[in-house]
């Protein structure tokens, strides 16, 4: 006999052979009788209509309906999600930096929230947080820019090479690979380089080339020459001059047999490439060959 055969028997699941065997057993008649009698059993009366009415009186009629609340609940859910998204987007956008960049041979003017002006030279990047600008005038600069800062709280320019702090003045900052120059045109500028502070009165420059601070002559102009479409240099290694030339004309410069560390003093025009090439090559006594978007500088005695 299989396991739980009595349960199987009641459920008519026994095989014929098993059933025959079970019927022969002494207990079969008793089981048969129990099954028969228990089949006639009845549970106490249960009045379903009464139970339903009791339930209905307690639920549907008095208590606030759950079903009608649903659309509103759904609406609240959607509204909550939208509110969260909007708040998130607002905070995110507000905390985002404002970023201005210039491409090669490009220049742009930026007006800061307090009407301070910034002129960005070619291939430069300026970023700042617009939020709480009045309390925290801080911009980050990579490249070169001329600042005309409106009077107000401390104004800070952060660069990789150092920070420049002013209250309200006009100054130029250039921070590129190995080259850091700050020139003050009006007021007083404080330059922090390698945690040393340098005070820079109007008409002075602070130049660091490859980590070395260079002495400079007094500045007489009122604004950096590049804002007047000229690039000027005073005792600057030729390689930085050529790099500036590349930026201003978006051209590739190659050199041959030339000492690019030699110092250059002079100016080149940012609009006329032929004029600019002559301005660089003549005083340096080098020759050049201009192609489509390349220029080769080579020594005069090169064959």
């Amino acid at each position: 006999m299989q396991e739980n055969y009595l349960a199987k028997w009641l459920n008519n699941e026994l095989s014929e052979k098993e059933l025959a065997e079970f019927k022969k057993s002494a207990e079969y008649s008793s089981y048969q009788r129990i099954a028969e009698a228990s089949g006639k059993l009845e549970a106490p009366d249960f009045n379903m209509d009464k139970a339903w009415n009791t339930f209905k009186d307690g639920r549907f009629d008095q208590s606030p309906k759950v079903v009608p609340l649903h659309p509103f609940k759904q609406f609240l859910r959607v509204a909550a999600v939208i509110a969260v998204l909007l708040t998130g987007a607002y905070i995110y956008l507000n905390s985002q930096d404002e970023i201005f960049t210039t491409q090669l041979a490009e220049r742009t003017e930026v007006v800061l929230p307090d009407a301070s002006e910034v002129i960005l030279n070619a291939d430069s990047r300026l970023s700042f947080k617009e939020r709480k600008w009045e309390d925290n005038r801080n911009v980050e600069l990579d490249g070169e820019a001329f600042f005309k800062v409106a009077k107000g709280q401390r104004f800070t320019v952060s660069t990789d090479a150092g920070t420049v702090t002013v209250l309200g003045t006009q100054f130029n900052v250039e921070s590129r690979d190995g080259f850091f120059e700050v020139t003050c045109y009006e007021g007083l500028v404080s330059v922090t380089h390698n945690s040393n502070e340098h005070k820079l009165p109007a008409g002075n420059s602070f130049v660091v080339i490859n980590g070395e601070i260079r002495a400079t002559d007094a500045v007489t102009s009122l604004a950096p020459s590049w804002t007047q479409n000229e690039s000027s240099f005073t005792s600057i290694p030729l390689k930085y001059v050529l790099a500036e030339f590349e930026r201003q004309f978006n051209i590739e410069v190659t050199t041959q047999n030339i000492n690019t560390e030699q110092l250059f003093t002079g100016t080149f025009d940012n609009t006329n490439i032929d004029l600019a090439l002559k301005s660089i090559s003549t005083p340096s006594q080098i020759r050049f060959k201009l192609e489509q978007d390349k220029v080769l500088f080579y020594a005069e005695d090169t064959p």
Partner: peptide, 20 residues
């Protein structure tokens, strides 16, 4: 279901033993 079959089987068995 197996547990229910077990209960059924035991119930029948116990009932018969009681009654007999």
């Amino acid at each position: 279901v197996k547990a229910i079959e077990k209960r059924m089987h035991l119930a029948l068995k116990t009932l018969r033993e009681q009654i007999d």
